[in-house]
Design a protein around this nucleic acid. Structure first.
Lengths: 347, 347
DNA sequence: CGCATCGCTGAGAGCGCTCCCTGATACTTC
DNA sequence: GAAGTATCAGGGAGCGCTCTCAGCGATGCG
């Protein structure tokens, strides 16, 4: 472990002494320099530089009640977080935006159900200015907890339907529209027996994609819809079910790429050619999967990094509005980002 | 955005008043309760409960100079972070350990070279008690910066060779040993013309795996070593090179699964059967890839989550040692975790 | 029974910062 | 040239907490 320095860091006081001004003046300079004349500003800047002064954030937030920190809560069971780069991308987007606003990112990962309380306590503790929460399960207690904690929050993905979520601000992909586009593409290809492998239906994204499928296939044979769980294994299982029930299906829309890859394996195993016999479309455009399958996967892309960036932007804007208060900036409202169909080989 | 509560949170003072004791006593109870008699402890506990008191961390660290927060620095170019669940798993492990010690996880993602300065400044600013740093590139300036900042740090993966890293504590997989095991397995299979696709050689893990390969294939034909970059495309490129140079090779050890998947495609494209004609082994046991390929990938597994957990544990132990100072706990030293060969279909 | 000792509680200072308010200086304006 | 008005710097309080130290009652021992 690198040795920790024992030399105490310089304080405002020290900088003030060196620059020959008062603490207050240094503080003003450090915080933007308004209302201080140029020569003094310069002197203070130099003193700061020479001493390597860095403001003590603890002391600062003690009085300002701001923390310049935002919590990112990821309350996903293990599987999902590992299986795809979804969160890595979102985090990247969030990080970029927060960095641009000098805010820190405090990451809260939950480990199992009873861990929610811990997160709730932390958020209620007022350690951060706001929270970005990924809570994609309908029965998730987190939105309620957060509502109770009174922390400004933006959700990633439309949250479930607790009381606390009614007025919630969220950023989501146009799951329903994206699904519609995928299915319409299959229709345009001349496919008529189009099946759907749903995601885990306790997640709004899965429900929305299913709704999108139904929008186009208004009276789809119920046997053409099989419930999956967003995993490759679930995709395999669902695909088998579908083929057993309707051996003559000619297209499949899977609610994500991982399940599509599973479905693909089953199709191949059954000697069906993709896309000739069965056209296949996924969702997410998860590159390591979508591009690596054979044939490569036609899929619905969502701009995940942008979602993250947008979440952070909405939150920060809301915080600024709350701080500046009455008038001017107004509280942000939810945003649904468009998706695009990426045509590759599978459909 | 959920509304932010305007009611100010209760202070120590308020709890003290309610319990009919002094601030100091409440503080003692909140911080473990040593040296306070049971009836009082009980009274204070109840007051805390009733008021929903949560300590103000800012005020606390202002005096203790502790933050109960650890920075996790990920200084990777985009590609790697997205391509695999590596970091998600590490983060999970780190998070578990930190949570168990009531420490927060502050995530610092760098965006490009010039961003290192920002990270350095933040760490030097004394906002966190320590840092966990992933810095796998030989020319990375980060170790130096951190050394300069004097923040207790544990590295994920053996860092490069700056002055500041000589004494660095790190947690790494036994890349060399794992590579040796993989290659020995190929030898045991009776393969003789064994090729290696290296990772990006500016990373210690790639160098170590190459060294492991060479340990077994002491005088390998240089044409049997092709430089990759840890991406599938790089794997394809390298595989083509290898086949062009040595059409008769009968085994390939790729420095990660992603490259192995690329190599696999090229092998299939050239009409070579895996494992019959060419045996193939990857590294990482990155599930979404290793299990999904056809044939599934034999690979070297590293316990990534455990690495993360261990990093956090070492750091916290070091911090405790520094705090308790002289005697008792001693500063931790680096750890290299074993790897295991996972046999699937490709070799 | 008196005195030293120990255990527990409370008073108070102060961590480093921001921000209000006062005072000083420079600049109008008549 | 005096009075009024901006403009800018500094003094000081206080954010909520921890921690040292003094004090006080209870206990042990001679």
């Amino acid at each position: 472990m690198s040795e920790s320095s024992t030399v105490s860091r310089p304080t405002l006081e020290a900088v003030a002494a060196r620059a020959g001004v008062s603490r207050a003046t240094v503080s003003r300079v450090v915080n933007g320099g308004d209302g201080v004349r140029e020569p003094l500003v310069e002197r203070v800047r130099r003193a700061v530089e020479e001493l390597g002064y860095v403001p003590n954030q603890a002391a600062r937030s003690l009085v300002t009640r701001r923390h310049d920190a935002v919590a990112v809560v990821i309350a996903e069971p293990e599987t999902r977080v590992f299986a795809d780069p979804f969160f890595a991308l979102q985090l990247r987007g969030i990080s970029k935006e927060l960095t641009a606003h000098d805010s820190q990112l405090v990451l809260l990962l939950t480990e199992g159900r009873d861990d929610h309380a811990r997160v709730g306590r932390y958020l209620a503790g007022g350690h951060v200015d706001g929270a970005l929460v990924f809570s994609l399960h309908l029965d998730d207690p987190l939105p309620e907890l957060i509502h109770g904690a009174g922390v400004p929050t933006v959700f990633g993905g439309r949250p479930g339907w607790g009381d606390g979520t009614r007025s919630a601000v969220y950023v989501d992909s146009d799951n329903r529209g994206g699904a519609r586009e995928a299915v319409r593409h299959l229709v345009a290809l001349g496919r008529t027996r189009i099946a759907h492998i749903t995601g885990a239906l306790d997640q709004t994204s899965a429900v929305d994609r299913l709704d999108g499928f139904r929008d186009v296939m208004v009276d789809a044979d119920p046997r053409l819809i099989a419930e999956g769980d967003f995993t490759p294994a679930g995709g395999e299982r669902a695909m088998r079910e579908l083929l057993d029930a309707c051996p003559d299906l000619d297209a499949v829309f899977a609610a994500n790429d991982l399940m599509a890859s599973g479905a693909l394996r089953v199709l191949r195993e059954r000697g069906l050619r993709v896309p000739e016999d069965v056209a296949l479309i996924g969702f997410d455009d998860m590159l390591p999967v979508a591009e690596q399958t054979d044939p490569s996967l036609t899929t619905v892309r969502q701009d995940i990094e942008e979602m993250g960036r947008l979440m952070a932007r909405l939150l920060l804007r809301g915080l600024a509005a709350a701080a500046g208060s009455q008038g001017g900036l107004e509280a942000p409202s939810s945003v649904v980002l468009p998706t695009t169909l990426v045509r590759r080989a599978s459909a």
